[in-house]
């Protein structure tokens, strides 16, 4: 399609505007981190805000977020890989029902869904209330639809002919899956892991509703806002968790990218 110049210019301006709207809160927050007060335009640059944070407890919150991110990613891959595979490659009774059920967590707002998990646990597994596995489960379940869909798209765009070739060559189905299918969907796998990790490390609701006090970074920040309102030190905390999670996700991408040489276009 060939676009005329005025249309192109308009589209460019719209795209820049969108990017600006999206990025502005982050810029504002970064600026605020280095001032004495939250204001615009920023005045009185200082690093005082960094000193005003109760570092040990915030570090614990970050560590908990990252642990939760790691375990959630592993758990989600363990659940979603087989689920996405059978949904995409096999025809079985109940397939469309499962396909719909997987979307349940997105139909309800996060708080109500996690609350429902909390009630369920309180009734059937009272001794597990507030434990890490329950927080993990609550975090993972919310991200299942996203991860399953991302992986399903990878399977859908990968020709089953590779698996079949492997089977005829003498590979058992599991061998074919691990040695052929997984590497070929590698890029999709990385994307799905990045989604899972980010969703979990930035999560707030499950730790808030299902946990027993140990906050994630987001929950910690929420509590701080409740105590002291929006201050530069809150901005610093937001900045730090964002840099850490973004850094890990980018590192993951670059490390695994080398593993799948030839598959990334």
């Amino acid at each position: 399609m060939k676009l005329s110049r005025p249309v192109l210019v308009t589209l460019n301006i719209a795209a820049l505007l969108l990017a600006f709207i999206l990025i502005w809160p982050v810029i504002q927050m970064m600026l605020s981190s280095f001032t004495t007060d939250i204001d615009f335009p920023p005045r009185n640059f200082t690093l005082n805000a960094f000193g005003n944070i109760v570092w040990p407890s915030y570090f614990l919150a970050i560590r908990f977020s990252l642990e939760l991110g790691l375990w959630t990613t592993l758990l989600l891959l363990a659940i979603c890989l087989p689920a996405a595979y059978v949904l995409e490659r096999r025809r079985f009774p109940g397939r469309s029902l499962l396909s719909v059920l997987i979307f349940v967590p997105t139909i309800f707002p996060g708080v109500t869904y996690v609350s429902a998990i909390g009630i369920y646990v309180a009734i059937f597994f009272p001794y597990l209330r507030g434990t890490f596995p329950i927080v993990l489960l609550g975090t993972a379940m919310g991200a299942i639809p996203l991860v399953v869909r991302a992986l399903q798209a990878s399977f859908a765009t990968t020709d089953p002919v590779y698996e079949e070739a492997a089977l005829v060559m003498g590979a058992h189905p599991l061998q074919a899956f691990v040695r052929v299918t997984l590497p070929i969907i590698g890029p999709g796998l990385i994307t799905a892991s990045m989604i899972a990790f980010t969703a979990a490390a930035m999560s707030f609701t499950p730790a808030f509703i299902l946990g027993s006090g140990q906050p994630t970074a987001a929950y910690y920040i929420y509590r701080e806002i409740g105590k002291v309102g929006f201050t530069p030190s809150v901005a610093v905390m937001v900045l730090i968790i964002q840099v850490v999670v973004l850094g890990i996700v980018q590192a993951m991408y670059f490390i695994f990218r080398r593993q799948f040489r030839g598959l990334f276009v």
């Binding site: 020709d159 002919v161 590779y162 079949e164 070739a165 492997a166 089977l167 005829v168 060559m169 003498g170 590979a171 058992h172 052929v180 070929i184």
Partner: peptide, 16 residues
């Protein structure tokens, strides 16, 4: 299939 000792070439490209 993995117990049959066959070789197969498919219609679509299948080199890994």
């Amino acid at each position: 299939p993995f117990h049959r000792n066959l070789g197969m070439v498919f219609q679509r490209p299948s080199m890994f």
